[in-house]
Every structure is written in C-alpha cells, then in structure tokens.
C-alpha cells in the first residue's frame, strides 16, 4: 500500500461518471488509498477570472477543504485544477499538501498497472494532444507510455498538437475548434486510427461530438485501461451526445425529474446538441 492520497476530481468531470468510477477502480486495484473529493465544494475557481470575488472565495474554500481532507498528497484529475492550485491557490493560501496529476501517479505505478492490464484491446489509436499544462510534467509522453502497456493497443505517432492546454478554452472560439478538429480528423484518417484517445474530460466532452456524428470514434484513456483490466464501462455521455435532442427520452422521466426539466431544456440539451466540427464548412 502506498501513501494515502486525496483524489481531487474537480467539478466538470462529474459529467462522466464512467470515467470517475473507472479511476476509482484503477486506484483501488493499485492498492492506493484514495479519498475521493469533487464538485462545487472543491471547485478551483479557475474559470472565474471575470468574477474575482467568486474566484477568491472558491480558492479559500478549496484550500481549506483539501487541507481538511488530511492527506499529504493531493492527486488532481483535472489539468485546470492542477494549474490553478500550482499557479494561484497555493501562492495565496496555506495548503500543507503536495500536488500531483493522476497521470503522474499512474506513470509512477506503471509496473503494477502493467500486471493488471490483462485483456487485449485490439485498437489502433491516435492520442489527442495539447501543449502540456505544466512544462515540468511531460504528461502526454507519460500517457503514451501508459497506453503502450495495454496489450493489443497500438498508439500511432500522431504529430499534431492542438493549441491551448485543453479543448474547453477552444470551445469558446468556434473557428479555432473547427480548424483543430479538421486537422485532427485528417491526421487520424491518414494514419489509419480506429479511435482518438482523450486525456482530459474537457476534451472528451467536446470531441465526443466527432464520434456522435460518425466522423471518428473517441475514447478516454482511463476507460481503455479499465477495459484492459476487465472492467467495461459504457460511455453514457456519448449516448446523450448521440441522442442530442432525443436525450430527454433516453434519460426517462425519473432521471429528468432528478435533474429538473427546466435545467435540462435550458442547459443540458443544448450542450448535447453542440458539435465541434462541421466537415463541409
């Protein structure tokens, strides 16, 4: 058993329960004692630069709550949370813990992880790469090494690096997103990729639109690791994205009621219908 950690999800990965549950399963299989925390009580506030009072409050609360979790190591899922903790929160609040990204932890434990990856995943994949969010963490290189441990999986050379450090910032600039997706799809087809592999939920959420429209299958790396461990999770967000306006019927009345019909109509259905790329544009 290694050092107990706080596994810090952040907020928006909660769209992808399958990814969250797969991470928890992997950490458990690696015998890492991980206390899971996430949601607005642990929001880093990185997206709140236009409301600094709110951002400051989130930073204070999250520093307090992560300190109170009582573990010396915080492992972030989200690149935006990691960057905000490093660049802003820890420089303006006392923390009392060390910080790592989940990819670093998996990479460190890759020997044990390899022993758990027993099932073949026969797929040729291209990794969706951005610039590393922290120049001192060669994150995409580490993901490549981790994926290379999966039997049957071929990681293609790729070569195109999308601007920015994740897709969420590009999503507010449709022309940039359009150009980035065009290059990504073209390269994936050139190299004969059977799927595009995402690292972050911010990219997964956007790029699943490519899958939903039949341009290119999109898989998150954590779900591929879980599959190789014999744990299959369906990507439920993909089914919502594919259904788009039909997601309401797919969810059914009970889950619609749990979310609230007005919020579903106002915010979730438009998100499911949004697409990052129109090939004929």
């Amino acid at each position: 058993m290694s050092e107990p950690v706080t596994f810090w999800l952040g907020c928006n990965v909660l769209r992808h329960g399958d990814v969250v549950h797969a991470c928890v399963d992997i950490l458990r299989a690696l015998e890492i004692d991980a206390k899971v925390v996430g949601g607005p009580d642990y929001c880093c506030g990185n997206v709140k630069d236009a409301n600094l009072t709110a951002e400051a409050g989130m930073a204070r609360r999250t520093a307090h709550n992560l300190r109170a979790a009582g573990r010396g190591q915080v492992v972030a899922w989200c690149p935006s949370c990691h960057a905000q903790m490093n660049d802003v929160i820890s420089r303006s609040h006392s923390t009392g813990f060390a910080l790592a990204h989940l990819v670093e932890l998996l990479w460190e434990h890759r020997g044990r992880l390899a022993n758990l990856l027993v099932r073949e995943v026969p797929l040729r994949v291209m990794l969706h790469e951005h610039y590393d969010f922290d120049s001192e963490i060669p994150l995409h290189a580490m993901v490549r090494e981790i994926l290379a441990l999966v039997p049957g999986l071929t990681v293609l050379p790729g070569g195109y690096r999308a601007p920015g450090y994740m897709c969420a910032t590009l999503a507010t600039m449709p022309a940039v997103m359009q150009a980035m997706c065009g290059r990504t799809v073209a390269q994936a087809r050139d190299q004969g990729a059977g799927a595009l592999v995402t690292v972050y939920h911010q990219c997964h959420r956007e790029l699943l639109g490519l899958d939903a429209d039949g341009h290119l299958p999109v898989r998150n790396y954590v779900l591929l690791l879980a599959r190789s461990m014999g744990i299959e999770y369906a990507d439920e967000y993909l089914s919502w994205k594919t259904a788009a306006g039909g997601a309401k019927a797919l969810l059914g009345p009970q889950r619609v009621a749990a979310v609230g019909e007005a919020l579903l109509e106002r915010a979730l259905l438009p998100e499911f219908a949004r697409r990052p790329w129109k090939p004929d544009r």
Partner: peptide
C-alpha cells in the same frame, strides 16, 4: 449562470446518492 447547476445535475445522473454525499459534500459545508 448554470455552471454549478449543471455540475449538480450531472452528479445526480452519474453518481449514487451515497457517492454524492461522501465525495462531494465537504465536512466544512
């Protein structure tokens, strides 16, 4: 304006009530 409303909504869709309580409610809250 729906940033956190969406996070809560998705938590209700993807996590169990027990996971929501254990993972997303900080003791300080």
């Amino acid at each position: 304006p729906d940033l956190f409303n969406k996070v809560h909504a998705f938590a209700r869709l993807t996590l169990t009530p027990e996971e929501i309580e254990r993972w997303t409610v900080a003791p300080a809250a």
